[in-house]
Amino acid sequence: MNASLILASRSAARRAMLAGAGVPFEAEDAGVDEPAIKAASGSDDPVALAVELARAKALAVSQRRPGAWVLGSDQTLAFDGGLISKAPNLYAARDRLKLMRGREHQLHSGAALAKDSVVVWSGVDTVRMRMRDFSDAFLDAYLAAEGEPVLASVGAYRLEGMGSQLFDRVEGDYFTVLGMPLWSVLAELRRVGAIAT
């Protein structure tokens, strides 16, 4: 490797993906104002927004860490013709999950790689997910078991946990659901020489 890799994220799932793939990295919170970026983008396009947020995170850390490769990643959720943001509390998460049950939504996971304050690559992957028609009793048990940590996910679920029981169909890559298009990220890291080929 010719430079260190920094993951510009607080996400435990993204950290676990890179660690599980055997990629050496440091993690640093990008500290970006996501609502402000969304507002400034002027776009309701969830795909473009996922990439824009990933680019903003990569650039924010890259400006502080010259010479390092910086990987930013973010995710948007499109449902019923609109964008969904993270639920502020478990009551809002419950209402949202009730609205989404028995219906389909899309997760868009964007990623961007920057070095020396320049984005050298960005990409996105999409997964289509259908929630099953779960009961209110199951929903209450799910939220009681998972608690506040589900609020860190835009969909108020973790597919790697009990949230897997909310679904009856997922079309697309598992890593994209977790929050990063891992296969394309790894390919790009190899291409730029940030990890071994």
Rank of each mutant, 00 (worst) to 15 (best):
R128N: 05
F138T: 13
G72K: 10
R55G: 10
K86P: 08
R158L: 14
A3P: 05
I84D: 00
N2D: 11
R64Y: 01
G147L: 11
S117D: 15
R130M: 07
L182H: 01
D133R: 14
D125K: 10
G179L: 06
A112S: 03
V51T: 13
N2R: 10
D44H: 03
G161L: 04
R128Y: 05
A56V: 12
D80M: 00
I6Y: 07
L143P: 08
F138V: 11
Q75V: 07
L49W: 07
L159W: 04
G31H: 14
G172N: 04
A36M: 03
R64Q: 09
A194W: 03
K98W: 09
L18T: 07
A3I: 02
V177T: 12
L143I: 03
K98Y: 04
D80W: 00
L71R: 02
P181D: 00
M131E: 15
G155R: 08
S43F: 08
R64C: 05
Y157K: 13
W121S: 11
F25C: 05
E171M: 04
R64V: 07
R94V: 11
A48M: 02
R132A: 08
L178M: 15
V124T: 14
A21I: 13
T197P: 01
V154E: 05
A114T: 14
G110S: 13
K57I: 11
K98M: 15
A60K: 07
R169P: 01
Q165W: 05
A196Y: 12
V124P: 00
E104A: 12
E104V: 10
E52R: 15
A50D: 13
N2V: 01
L166P: 01
S62T: 11
F138L: 05
I37F: 00
V32K: 08
L159A: 05
Q63S: 15
G102M: 09
A141Q: 15
A141K: 14
P66N: 10
V70K: 11
G161P: 04
A144S: 12
S62R: 08
D168H: 13
R101N: 12
D140R: 07
L143M: 02
W69P: 01
L182I: 02
T197Q: 04
L139E: 10
L49N: 08
A93G: 14
T76G: 01
K98D: 13
D140W: 02
A56S: 15
A12G: 08
D74K: 00
A13Q: 10
A152H: 00
A156G: 09
Q106T: 12
A111M: 07
V70R: 10
E146L: 09
Y142V: 08
L189Y: 09
R169V: 07
P24E: 15
S11A: 04
D140H: 03
V61R: 08
R103W: 07
T176G: 09
S73L: 05
V150F: 06
R10S: 14
